[in-house]
Nucleic acid binder design. Structure first.
Length: 215
DNA sequence: GCCCAGGTGTTTC
DNA sequence: GAAACACATGGG
């Protein structure tokens, strides 16, 4: 019988610590969180490399760069026009409030992030957990599919419902920030690798459209 | 060519 | 409200 706690133990034993998020600085992690929306990470890496090559891994530079130019750099990450806007909106908030958010309580900081146009619950929680080291559990499409296939959730619950569920189940861990951090990273690692196996295993398949499990 | 990817905002019933 | 749609590149 699986539980949210036992699945974590299994994933950790199988894949080992992931030491997320890929990125050198908190700001780079935040940029990656916006760019990876519904996009393969390999494409995000190319876009971040473009920003770095143009010395644009900075909120000030991003804001002052013409949208056309910024979109050109973001091109490999897809949705480049939209993401150029979203990145600028985020950077405006970051310069205004994000740099001195250390003293802000997590609930307030989360609301602030959600008020930024283009930052939804998952992106906000990526930023909170991986850049600000706050104890929030990130729910993504992989999490829904994995735990639906394991029979632990329905899969169509609202974002906040699932976040509360995972946070409650893991609340008694000694260092829950570290656990939340590793757990989400392990889910992504598992999802990425398990579906690459050939022939594809229907029982553990985490594709969007699985013949056995559906969405 | 088809499917998929670490979502979000807008439009439409 | 929820369902459908737009946004877009690159890899398998």
């Amino acid at each position: 019988m699986h539980t949210i706690g036992s699945v974590y133990t299994s994933l950790l034993r199988h894949w080992g610590p992931q030491h997320w998020w890929p990125g050198d600085t908190p700001f780079e992690i935040m940029v990656g969180a916006v760019l990876t929306q519904n996009t393969a990470w390999t494409n995000v890496e190319k876009a971040i490399a473009n920003l770095r090559a143009n010395r644009a891994l900075s909120a000030r530079v991003i804001i002052s760069t013409p949208s056309r130019t910024l979109a050109k750099w973001l091109r490999p990450s897809g949705y480049f026009n939209i993401k150029a806007q979203r990145l600028k909106a985020f950077c405006t908030w970051y310069l205004d409030k994000g740099r001195r958010a250390r003293h802000m309580d997590t609930a307030t900081l989360r609301r602030e992030l959600l008020d930024v146009h283009g930052i939804g619950p998952e992106t906000a929680d990526d930023i909170l957990l991986y850049a600000y080291q706050r104890p929030v559990f990130v729910i993504d499409a992989y999490t829904r599919r994995l735990f639906r296939r394991l029979g632990l959730i329905q899969g169509d619950e609202g974002y906040e419902t699932l976040r509360a569920l995972f946070e409650t189940r893991l609340a008694r861990r000694a260092d829950r920030i570290a656990v939340f951090n590793e757990y989400h990273a392990l889910i992504v690692r598992h999802a990425k690798e398990i579906c690459r196996t050939k022939p594809r295993c229907e029982a553990c398949c985490l594709r969007r459209r699985c013949p056995q499990y559906g969405g």
